[in-house]
Amino acid sequence: MSSETQNAPKVHVAVDEIRLAQPFSILLTVCDDVAVSEVRVDAIMPAHQHGLNYAPKITALGDRVFRADNMLFHMPGLWELRVDTNFGGRSISYTSDVVLK
């Protein structure tokens, strides 16, 4: 995922398959050795001016790996996945584009 913050710890997102209008999960891995105090996940469709209809549920799996469940993209098109993190008081946001057909 990309961040506008300089020297931001690297965050990797993994997802198996995203089926339109069906729930899916993503795995987030903070690649750098930093303490993670908070992870929040959301998504929007910039062109449509709306976001997710369901709040993702975040579970810490250990070793700086987090799973977000209850994700659901209910329309085809460009979604902007957004991850907000807090590394020891330092808030950093990440984004990643997902195009769903």
Partner: peptide, 15 residues
């Protein structure tokens, strides 16, 4: 139309 009417049911079942 496909933005809302999608999938085998032709509906995303949202609002």
């Amino acid at each position: 139309c496909v933005l809302c009417h999608n999938g085998p049911r032709f509906s995303n079942n949202e609002f």
